[in-house]
């Protein structure tokens, strides 16, 4: 019970911090001081108090987009184990629900973008639709590998099962999985090299261009949901890449927080040293991720 409360507490409070850490890392690389770690919290709270501007072409779908995206991501946050602790909700087949909840959020985000009738938002929506379905098989190959390694059909046993022992036995498979899943993590969360959240040219963006017309509280929800998505997908990745566990519940929570921050630093480093890919190259990289994940499946199933 305590663990469930800590789980929910972390899922609610910690996500924007990751964005803050990424920003700080990038600032350090660029030789700037950068915004404080808590800046994303201030931004979200400020947006929640602002007024809204609605385009007169929009309908209720436009308002539903951010809400459904946040609701589905937050249910997904309850399905994923954090560190060595099982998730609050766990049942056979919850990995499928986990993947499909993101699809539900995406459906409404993309529909909300098309609701504005703007060509730019249509463009973002089309890109998101195309690239996200290419990312889907990678996640499922990863789930197959994990399910086979642990012999279970639920996220918590699947992910908690991974330890240094498993790494010694199936290191090659897990290494390829780390590669594939990191690419998907960046793509799904619209980070460089797939998308640049900070760019000011709509023609080059994917996620940001879909939410051009959202303002005020809706934009706040979108920013928060995006950070939560990074957190939830990051928690999945951290299980595979950094499977530390001590056995002491409190130490394990601390370890989880540290690993998530490490992940944010790594993303920040990647964003600092890489440029955004040309859009034509995006599908190729996503297919490469799928192939990596497929190889890892092949290694464990053969």
């Amino acid at each position: 019970m305590t663990n469930s409360i800590i789980h929910i507490f972390l899922a609610i409070l910690m996500p924007p911090l990751l964005i803050g850490v990424i920003g700080k890392t990038k600032a350090l690389f660029a030789g700037r001081t950068g915004a404080p770690f808590l800046q994303p919290y201030y931004d979200i709270i400020r947006l929640l108090h602002k007024g809204s501007v609605f385009s007169s072409t929009t309908t209720w779908i436009f308002r539903a987009g951010p809400i459904v995206a946040l609701a589905s991501t937050s249910i997904a946050a309850l399905l994923i184990p954090f560190g060595a602790h099982p998730s609050p909700i766990s049942f056979q087949g919850d990995m499928i629900l986990y993947a499909y909840l993101f699809a539900l959020g995406r459906f409404f985000t993309m529909a909300a973008a098309l609701d504005t009738g703007s060509s730019f938002e249509g463009m973002g929506s089309a890109r998101e639709a195309a690239y996200s379905c290419l990312a889907e098989p990678t996640l499922f190959f990863a789930l197959i590998t994990l399910s086979r390694l642990s012999g279970s059909y639920s996220l918590s046993p699947m992910l908690i099962n991974i330890s240094f022992g498993i790494w010694l036995n199936a290191g090659a498979a897990l290494l390829m999985l780390v590669g594939g899943m990191f690419i998907v993590l960046l793509a799904e969360n619209c980070r460089i090299p797939f998308d640049d959240p900070n760019t000011h040219l709509e023609l080059t963006m994917i996620h940001e261009v879909m939410v051009l017309d959202h303002s005020g509280p809706a934009l706040g929800i979108i920013h928060y949901a995006a950070s939560l998505k990074l957190f939830v997908l990051g928690a999945f990745f951290v299980h595979i890449a950094l499977p530390y566990a001590t056995g002491n519940p409190y130490l394990d929570w601390g370890l989880f927080i540290i690993s998530m921050l490490e992940l944010a630093v790594v993303i920040g480093v990647v964003e600092s040293v890489m440029a955004r890919l040309r859009l034509i190259r995006v599908p190729q990289l996503l297919v490469a991720a799928t192939i990596l994940a497929a190889f890892s499946t092949l290694l464990v199933i053969r």
Partner: peptide, 28 residues
Amino acid sequence: ALAIPALALVGGLAVACFVKVYGIVFLG
């Protein structure tokens, strides 16, 4: 093992297709 990602890809493509239908026909 090969059928699982295929089914996932079908799901992803179906989302793309129905966002298209719903967005173009009913929205904007």
